[in-house]
Design a binder for these strands. Structure first.
Length: 529
RNA sequence: GCCCUCGUAGUUCAAUGGAUAGAACGAGGGACUUCUAAUCCCUAGAUGUAGGUUCGAUUCCUACCGAGGGUACCA
């Protein structure tokens, strides 16, 4: 829809002119609006209003039929309003496409393989709220990319070896009384509980904290999988093991060799370094310590090489805020490896607030509300919507009491209720005539609903480009508002037959879009509430 | 110290450099004999501070103030 206007403008202005087409705040400014006249006027050093007038005439000459009107408003905007006929055709398209509406189909040669890595929390305890934020984000981003024609793999990278796991093993030994507690050890009830249940395993491995840590990590990974897949309905295609898939498949040596061949490696103070400063990092980074141990960074580079070798064109890595300092170096590695389109998304921190006061969260100290707790408290749909409503770049204050209180009056129910209302009408009507005359849909509410339903593919497309997933939840709220408004003002059942038929088609289209939207967001589409 | 992110109604959040800064919750007032009132309608209420860039700034630049994070041969 918007694309039609963009194409029209592109046909009439010089190529280098940059412009925007957006939806105006006020309906008096039409369905879409462009600022192209400002840009043209600057180029030609003329008056924006006069330029707008010229452009308007050029547009009308090229496309005399699809617009009801094109208007100029100060200080130089050009506002487009579609014709009734055009809107009715759009409605027809939704009905024709059915639940494929919004799905982009690309020819085989154009399909790109993208891996989305997210959560990837160490299996050393339950998931935090921040993990949940990244989890929902990665899940829905993957959906959006799939709808936009990408081939997507959803990956959870499991750090199941190295210092972190050794510390974890030691923490368990400390909890069982074999070692003295230390500052960096993991604490918390979940460690103690595991230690109590697994006394025999601890006894057997008391001199091998790595093995013990790995053994416990297996158990915690199972719990994580359960929480993520069953409770949160976050889907993964692959759980990649750092130990089995990277270390034991010699990817460490392989990536080291590749870095060396590219001339990016040097030795200093007995350690091996990668020249990440060539890619804008503050300092070069260690790949292999002077004790000949590979760093976590080197293992990660090996992981990126694995992804590249498995045929991916791109990778999107969703990380928590404690990884800020990590972005430059991993992007450096991606560049050397040749993994094009490598992107790192940092989700901002969540501050847990309780009764208006900040509550510190720490996994190591065992003081936190887990992701699972939250889902148990407010439900999966609410938790999901709640996180997705907010840009990942924003620091988020999370008050669990408030979340619980508001879960009964939550925007997700607002959207689901709109869907229920639509379904209910269709159910009451029974069979729907396919030969409805859509041209009689001409009230403000009819047209506004058609307009907003038609926007769905644009919302998806924009989101697949800039990853601003909260656009989807905003759209869900906007669309629901428009539907509720329609429902309040226009009736279906009891009207004369041709109105019933036309409105039933419109509602059918609404049901389609709501179903599509809920599927992308991963929330349920209830028949009754 | 240096680097990054963030600062918007009472609260939680929106606004690819655009028009009168939008919602939701909370507050106040109204609307059900109707396809589900988990809804709709009305009212009050905000860009941290000081400059700069331009037709136009919440958005870009500089300084300051405040919050969080990073700054290891840890992960």
């Amino acid at each position: 829809m918007r694309q039609i206007i963009i194409d029209l403008i592109k046909k009439t202005v010089p190529k280098k002119i940059d412009f925007d087409v957006l939806i105006p705040d006020d309906e008096k400014y039409g369905h879409y609006s462009t600022n192209v006249a400002f840009r043209l006027a600057k180029e030609k050093k003329s008056d924006p209003m006069a330029t707008a007038e010229e452009s308007k005439n050029a547009f009308l000459k090229k496309e005399p039929f699809i617009f009801e009107k094109i208007e100029i408003s100060k200080p130089g905007f050009i506002n487009f309003s579609f014709s009734l006929d055009f809107l009715h055709k759009r409605l027809q398209e939704i009905l024709k496409a059915g639940n494929d509406f919004g799905k982009k189909k690309l020819s085989k040669s154009k399909i790109e393989k993208v891996q989305v890595e997210f959560i990837s929390a160490n299996p050393t305890g339950p998931l935090t709220l921040a993990n949940g934020r990244g989890g929902f984000f990665g899940d829905v981003l993957s959906n959006v990319l799939q709808w936009s024609g990408y081939e997507v793999e959803r990956e959870y990278y499991v750090n199941d070896t190295g210092n972190q796991i050794i510390t974890f093993g030691k923490s368990i030994l400390a909890a069982a009384g074999f070692l003295k507690e230390e500052e960096e050890f993991y604490k918390g009830d979940y460690i103690k509980k595991w230690a109590e249940k697994n006394k025999k395993i601890i006894e057997e491995n008391k001199n091998n904290p790595l093995k013990l840590g790995q053994r416990a990590a297996e158990d915690f990974l199972k719990l994580i999988k359960k929480a993520v897949q069953d409770k949160a309905r976050i889907r993964f295609d692959r759980f990649t093991s750092e130990d089995k898939d990277i270390h034991k498949k010699d990817l460490i040596q392989k990536v080291l060799k590749l870095f060396d061949k590219e001339g990016k490696v040097y030795k200093k103070d007995g350690a091996m370094w990668l020249k990440t400063t060539e890619f804008g990092d503050d300092k070069d980074r260690v790949l292999m310590t002077s004790d000949h141990e590979p760093t976590y960074f080197l293992a990660d580079a090996g992981h990126y090489l694995e992804t590249k070798e498995r045929g991916f064109d791109g990778k999107i890595n969703v990380l928590g805020p404690d990884h800020y300092g990590y972005v430059k170096r991993i992007q450096s590695a991606a560049k050397i490896i040749g993994l094009e389109k490598s992107e790192v998304i940092i989700t901002q921190a969540i501050r847990l607030v309780r009764d208006g006061k900040e509550a510190k969260m720490s996994k190591r100290k065992g003081e936190f509300v887990t992701f699972e707790d939250l889902i148990d408290e407010v439900g999966e749909d609410v938790a999901r919507f709640f996180f997705l409503m907010i840009s990942v770049g924003t620091h988020m204050d999370f008050d669990i009491g408030l979340a619980k209180e508001r879960s009964r009056k939550n925007p997700v129910f607002y959207a689901q209720y709109a869907y229920v209302r639509a379904k209910n009408i269709l159910e009451k009507l029974g069979k729907i005539s396919k030969k409805a005359d859509l041209s009689i849909l001409n009230t403000k509410e009819d047209l506004n609903l058609i307009l907003n339903l038609s926007r769905f593919p644009e919302v998806l497309e924009d989101t697949s480009k800039d990853y601003q997933l909260h656009r989807l939840t905003r759209y869900a709220q906007d669309l629901s508002r428009v539907f509720h408004d329609f429902y309040e003002k226009e009736r279906v059942i009891g009207e004369e037959e041709k109105i019933v038929n036309a409105r039933a088609s419109l509602i059918k289209a609404a049901v389609i879009v709501f179903q599509d939207l809920f599927e992308v967001l991963g929330i349920s589409a209830p028949d009754k509430m």
